[in-house]
Structure formats: structure tokens, C-alpha cells
Design a protein around this nucleic acid. Structure first.
Lengths: 351, 351
DNA sequence: CTGAAAGCGCTTACAG
DNA sequence: CTGAAAGCGCTTACAG
């Protein structure tokens, strides 16, 4: 059967059922009670005509589309994929669908997205922002309902976060308790810490907190910038090795980064955890299946996302309610990759 | 600045610029030329009022929303995430946005999606179908423009596929060339091969083809059903080990399954590739970073997705054009995990 | 190149 | 519980 050029409308259904369009609408939306007899007739007519409501028309009339947007830097990383999965599932459970956009770490694309939100194609937006300082949130006049995900220090918008600073501190403490003293940090350098990425900055700050508390000196030569992916983690690990510095542990700011680091350490002949401890962050499925299994900081992705959807729903319902920030608990998940004490890696003497 | 209850419309812009709404529309859509002077006045008015077009209204009028749907079983697996990433990027490049839905391997959810497509919220749908036999595609009267992704034997719908049977054959041949004779197949059993999942069935058929060609006897005790995830791969590998059968290679039908299998083999004390060869399928980023690096069947995810979007665009433009099926090339990517010959695993003698 | 009218398909007051 | 009217914001013929 060919796809029809024009689909039946409520008016067609109404004619066939011998009622007014309003009555069909009542049956479809279910907001106003309809007599059993009429409802049956209308439903029969809908089936016969294969009627499907036009949501553009409904959206135009209601100002709601039932679609929310989810914007994140890169859908392909394990953590992003896990969160996106949770968003889609949680939205589905609420009768919402999700439009996904990638910002590719470019503020301009983030801006586009917010702009699109304002075109009424979506009711609201969950935004995993690119950067702290120039987030679109501060630069758009009429913001649609937005919930931020991540450690953005931003008080004009609802947000969900984990305490990344505390988590960074917990991670570094754990590594030191296992005997590490020279921790390579794959996640960013001190200098650009606040300028670039809020999450990175906070995790690094937590690490430095732990160093201070343990009276361990921070070692800038063990900090390195990193792309947020497996390949990025591998590159960063190679960079550390190329510096020919001593280290006995690696703290990667995401599990994907840790996977890349693990690979390079194996390749280099360093054993984990006998020589070097390694830990990640996020507790993606994969972390339990690396070799050795990866210690990480975990938090409930479903809770995280549920909190975001709750905030968004509230914001859509009431634009003037006070802004809220919801913290989701995190916890250390110790696995074999940090079973110390590590022997440590001493670079070969320079020629 | 508070979010305004009602946003400015073209009419407001027209009034402010002293022109008709039609002229504003001409400026916005750019289809009809507008004099430089008028255009400037209109654009100024748009900026002053912070005008944003209402896409629901445009969609109602045009019958096009600029949104496409992408439906897949589970967004969180590495392969799905990679494909979804490519879909979003390729769509973005064409000025389209993507609504993502998960079918959770449930035909009912697949049906919902197609139904939603018909509500005109999306212009078309790229569908990675759950099953062969009861795909929604055969059960819906008025199908919206749909492109299938995957090895569905289905000729009434446009589709993009790789030759999974040939790929399965190539994989098994490669393992045998490396010296393997007893290949554990993590992907499905012969019995349900055609009943359940087209892709699985074809890959398995390819493996059987290779066995025949090499005059190697197929071993049903080495075939196992598997959930399409890392944990599923681990479970399947444990299942094979629990059967206490000999094997010298593992062919996992996705890289994620292979990652789970690798983990369990390590855990069991079997060395890859010295004792057992392992290979996967899909060539996700991760495959190059397992230990040892994972041999796999690769194909260009971007090409794959681009082909799907091209087909969808053609279908949206012409509902009556003949159906097309586009094959995307695949290739064996040999890495260390299959560097044979393998010693093989012989289970301990029963007590 | 610009304008006045009509309508896409739905739902919200307003009557009955 | 049901109906007739109006309008959400845009764009497509149709005139000028």
C-alpha cells in the first residue's frame, strides 16, 4: 500500500463517526470524559482510517512537543553513551522522546542547540556544557528550560552534579593508601584548570587537596592534558612515559582515558598493579572487564539522569521557581588495578 | 531576564519593520529574493525582538520538520554509540537533527517508534531492527520513509548492510589460517539462526561456510547464545568454559562481546593468543586498545551512516522510487589477538 | 519585489 | 457530554 500524500485528520474521523472534531479530540487526549457509545464509534473510525494525530499541529496549539533535547560533547565515549542511554530510557518512561545533539566541544554548536530549543521544537534541554567560562547559558537572552549536567559553577540554572573535588580527593587518597606517592594525573594541568573545563578543574583540585593533606608535593611534570577518549588516554600515557619521570600510579579522569593508559602501560612492559596502580572515573560497564579490572569512582547513572529529568520537568512547569542544584552521591569502587603497593616505574638513566 | 511567556512572531517583526508577514517569511526562508533595503530593516527588527521562528508552525505548514529518527536496540554498547555518533554528526552536516529511541530488543517499542514517525514529528526513520521475522516494517499500513540498517532480508524497504555472511566466512577462515580448528562462536546457535536475528544468523552461516570449505566439522557445543554486551560476552565465555570442551579460538560477533570474553579468558589463566585466539566484529575504538589488541572485522561507520542518510533523503523526496539496498565494504583487521598458532585449551579431565 | 487571504491540524474557551 | 468558532504561527498560491 503506497504511503498516502495526505493523512486523515480529526475532521475526517469526526465525519466518519458522525461527531464533531472536538469530540474526536476529547477521545484522543482523554482530558474530557466521553460517553462509552461515542468513544467506541470514534475509536472505530480512527482504526478504519488509520488515523494518527499530527504532533506538529498539537505542538503549535499547546506550545509543548513532548520532546526534550540532550546535548553533550561526544556521544561515542563510553560514559556519554551510558548517560545518553539512561536519558533515553528515563524519558521514554515519562512519555518523552529525546533529540540528541553533539557539541563537539565547540561553544558555537552549543549555542545553536539552545537556539533550536527556542524554536519550540523541544520543550527543554539537558545540557552537558563544554566549558565553564563561555557557556552559552550566560550568553543567551531568552533561555528555554535548561538543566545542566556536570560540575559547572553556575547558579542561574538548575543543575545536577557529583562532588568532583571530593571524588578527586578520595581517588588520590586511595592511591596513596595503597602506597603510591608519585601519581600521574591524566586529566589536565594546573595552569588551565579553572580556565578550561570545570569538571577537570575540580577533580584536579581534589587531587591537590589530598596531596596537601598527606604532605606530598604536587608534581607538575606528572600532570598532562588529555583528549577525552581511549586514544587520548593512550597519547597522554605515552607523553608521561616520554618525559622519563618516576611514577607509581595513574589517575585517569575517565574510565576511557584509563583504558588507553592501561594499554600503553602493558605495551611498555609495566605491570598493573605490581608496578603501577591505575584508576579511572565513571564506572562504565567496561571498567569491570579490563585486565586487571579497573578501580574507579562510581555513581548511579540512572539516579543522575532521573534527577536531571525531574529538574527539567519542574522548570518546564514553573519558569519562576528558584534554581536548584542536586548532588548525586559517588563512591570509590576498588578493584585489582589499584591493589598496592606498587613497585613504581623508574625511567632508564639518560644516555 | 525572565523567559517570556509568548515569543515574538513574524507578525510582530513585520509590524516593527513596516512590512507584511510574507516579506519576513521571505527573508527568513530565503526562497524569494528580497530587496537589500527591506532585508536590512527586517533583520534589524528580528534582532531587536529576538525573533526565533516557530518550527512547529513551519512543520505544520510544510509537512517537514527537519528531524529524523534513529532507532536502535541499545545506545550504550560501543558499536551502537559509534553509529549513533556518526548519525548525529552526518545529520548535523545536512542541517538535520536526530531523535533517538531505543527499542530494547522489543518489537513493541519498535512499533511505537514507527507510529510516532507517522505523527509527523519526524520526516523519516533510520531503523536498526530488532528481529527479522516480525519487524514492524511488515506490519504497519502506512509506513513513513524508513531506511533499515543491518542484514535484514527485506526487499520492500531501503536498506544499508554489510555482507555479514561473507564477513563471518572471512573471520573463520582467518582463524583457521592461523591454526585454529576448534572455534567457539559467541553469537548464536544454529537452531535459532534464522528465527531470531538476521545479523547473527548470517554471520553464523558464514562461519559454517568456512568450516565446510575447510572440511572442518561444525561443533554445536562450541556455539552459544549471547547478550549483545560486554557482560553478555563474559557470561557466554564462562558458559563455554563450563561445558569443558576443547577450543583454540573464539569468534565473538561484536567487539564488546569479545572484550567480555577476553576478560574471562585472562581470569581463567588462558593466554591470548598463545593458548587461544580471539577476534571480534565492528572495529570500535576500543578494539585497538584491549590487551592484546583485538583482531576484528572493520567497516567505515561514517560511510555506513552516510549511505543510510542518502537513502532516507531520496525516499523522503520520492516515495515511489524503487527500493535500493546499499552494501558497505568490510575488511579483516588483523591484530595480535589472533597471532597463531594457538596451543588450544583442553579442559581438565572429569573427576 | 511586496501584500491580503486562506489554511496546515489541532485544542481552548464559550455555549448549549 | 457535545458542537461551532477562533486561533496557535507559519507559508503557499494568487494578485499587484
Amino acid at each position: 500500500m503506497p504511503y498516502p500524500i495526505s493523512r486523515p485528520t480529526m475532521r475526517d474521523v469526526a465525519e466518519r463517526a458522525g461527531v464533531s472534531p472536538k469530540t474526536v479530540s476529547n477521545v484522543v487526549t482523554g482530558t474530557v470524559p466521553v460517553s462509552e457509545k461515542t468513544r467506541t464509534r470514534v475509536e472505530a473510525a480512527m482504526v478504519e482510517l488509520d488515523f494518527v494525530p499530527n504532533l506538529s499541529a498539537r505542538g503549535l496549539r499547546n506550545g509543548r512537543t513532548g520532546v526534550i533535547g540532550f546535548a553533550l560533547p561526544d556521544l561515542a565515549t563510553a560514559f556519554s553513551a551510558s548517560i545518553a542511554h539512561s536519558v533515553v530510557e528515563a524519558a521514554h518512561a515519562r512519555g518523552l522522546v529525546v533529540q540528541i545533539e553533539e557539541t563537539a566541544f565547540e561553544p558555537a554548536r552549543e549555542y545553536d542547540l539552545v537556539y533550536r530549543a527556542r524554536t519550540h521544537q523541544i520543550d527543554g534541554l539537558i545540557l552537558n556544557p563544554v566549558r565553564l567560562e563561555d557557556s552559552v547559558v550566560d550568553h543567551v537572552q531568552h533561555l528555554p528550560p535548561v538543566v545542566l549536567i556536570g560540575e559547572v559553577e553556575q547558579h542561574s540554572t538548575d543543575r545536577v552534579f557529583i562532588d568532583s573535588r571530593q571524588a578527586g580527593r578520595t581517588a588520590a587518597q586511595h592511591l596513596m593508601e595503597q602506597g603510591a606517592r608519585r601519581i600521574a594525573v591524566l586529566g589536565g594541568t594546573t595552569t588551565d584548570m579553572f580556565a578550561k573545563q570545570a569538571t577537570l578543574g575540580q577533580r584536579l583540585q581534589g587531587v591537590l587537596d589530598a596531596f596537601s593533606a598527606a604532605q606530598v608535593k604536587a608534581a607538575p611534570e606528572l600532570q598532562v592534558d588529555v583528549r577525552w577518549s581511549i586514544a587520548g588516554g593512550a597519547d597522554a600515557m605515552r607523553e608521561i612515559l616520554a618525559r622519563e619521570v618516576e611514577f607509581d600510579a595513574v589517575f585517569a579522569f575517565t574510565d576511557s582515558i584509563a583504558v588507553g593508559a592501561l594499554h600503553v602501560l602493558h605495551d611498555y612492559g609495566l605491570r598493573v598493579p605490581e608496578d603501577v596502580l591505575v584508576m579511572g572515573f565513571d564506572n562504565v560497564e567496561h571498567a569491570a572487564y579490563t585486565w586487571p579490572p579497573l578501580t574507579t569512582i562510581g555513581f548511579d547513572h540512572k539516579d543522575y539522569v532521573t534527577a536531571a529529568l525531574d529538574l527539567l520537568a519542574s522548570r518546564v512547569a514553573d519558569r519562576n521557581a528558584p534554581t536548584r542544584a542536586v548532588e548525586v552521591a559517588h563512591t570509590l569502587i576498588p578493584r585489582r588495578s589499584t591493589q598496592g603497593p606498587p613497585r613504581g616505574h623508574t625511567p632508564p638513566a639518560s644516555p
